[in-house]
């Protein structure tokens, strides 16, 4: 243990997790990397041992002991019910999986640190929200369903472990919407439609976190001591309408009463998977306070919210034709 960290990563087959593994493999202070997932990782792992297991499987406990793991990076919370085979299975995986994992962690004698990838969805999204959530702000209306609710429960279990074991450091990173060339997100499915759906008369404030920044901060908190809860996002705020314009796309405003029906029918076509809990978010959005991230964590993301979004649009080739044409004409006219 003196040589370096011995890290267990859950959900290693995911796209973000692959970036984290790569970031960790490049670091010199990591001695052992073990990945757990039910699926085989799509990319070959260089020096990482892969264990095919479900988190609810007792084999996790054995791996923790056998590998003398001292850090657990819990990244396997899924956000999309479609991909994980329905909302019930998603909940099973997210909540019960985390519960079992933390139960095993509580018993692992060598364990010193748990890092949890959580989400800013735990703050909910309402019109009565404060303009910007600090880590200790209680949500005005906690999310009643979906991913946000799962995340709250997972955080609660982790806090319980934290209370039981004094020698354990717990880091909770609440990420804003992740964007990038690798990770899938609600915004990818929204922006891959011919016109970007919006709720008519609403314009959410958004913050984005670039996948590279996310991988970087996860790798950093896994290898150094940063106990606490932190919001993580790029600096700056964008409106959805502004995003659409930046991407040169056309908005498709849907009247509020029809939104959930539209989302349901879109889900049936299997092209767009917007979970029901995200519809609220598309109305009011959410902004979190990043002071703690900057001050205590000393982390300054490379990508601002806007840069992350523009990078995402470029890499995913989501730039529309309408915008650039209009822009070129107007730019010519104004002599730019």
């Amino acid at each position: 243990m003196a040589d370096g960290r011995r890290i267990l990563i859950t959900g290693i087959a995911g796209q973000l997790q692959a970036l984290v593994v790569r970031a960790l493999e490049q670091r010199g202070d990591v001695e052992r990397l073990v990945g757990v997932d039910v699926r085989e990782p799509p990319q070959p792992l260089a020096s990482t041992r892969f264990v095919r297991a479900d988190l609810r499987n007792p084999v996790i406990g054995h791996v923790l002991d056998e590998e003398r793991i001292d850090t657990v990076l819990h990244l396997s919370t899924t956000t999309a019910p479609g991909a994980s085979g329905g909302r019930a299975r998603m909940k099973e995986h997210n909540v019960i999986g985390a519960m079992q994992l933390f139960a095993a962690c509580q018993r692992a004698p060598t364990l010193r640190r748990i890092v949890l990838k959580s989400t800013t969805a735990v703050y909910g999204s309402e019109h009565t929200d404060p303009v910007s959530f600090r880590e200790d702000t209680a949500p005005r209306t906690p999310p009643g369903q979906g991913f946000g609710k799962d995340a709250i429960e997972v955080e609660t279990y982790l806090r319980a472990v934290d209370r039981q074991r004094d020698d354990l450091e717990v880091t909770i990173l609440r990420f804003a919407n992740l964007l990038g060339a690798q990770v899938d997100s609600t915004f990818l499915s929204l922006f891959s439609l011919p016109a970007v759906p919006m709720v008519l008369g609403f314009d959410p404030r958004l913050q984005f976190c670039h996948e590279h920044d996310a991988a970087e901060i996860l790798a950093r908190t896994a290898t150094a001591s940063h106990p606490g809860v932190f919001n993580v996002a790029g600096d700056g705020v964008l409106y959805l309408s502004q995003c659409i314009r930046l991407a040169g796309r056309v908005p498709a405003p849907i009247p509020a009463p029809l939104v959930s029906a539209a989302a349901r029918s879109a889900r049936r076509t299997r092209r767009v998977d917007i979970p029901a809990d995200q519809l609220r978010f598309l109305r009011y959005g959410r902004v979190v306070d990043l002071e703690r991230m900057h001050q205590q964590l000393g982390f300054h993301p490379t990508y601002s919210t806007r840069a992350a979004f523009e990078d995402f649009v470029t890499r995913r080739r989501l730039r529309g034709r309408v915008g650039p044409t209009v822009q070129r004409v107007v730019a010519d006219a104004t002599g730019r």
Binding site: R205, V237, C243, V326
Partner: peptide
């Protein structure tokens, strides 16, 4: 049209 403006955290 180009979205070339900035907003603060209050929107």
């Amino acid at each position: 049209l180009a979205g070339d403006y900035t907003i603060d955290e209050f929107g």
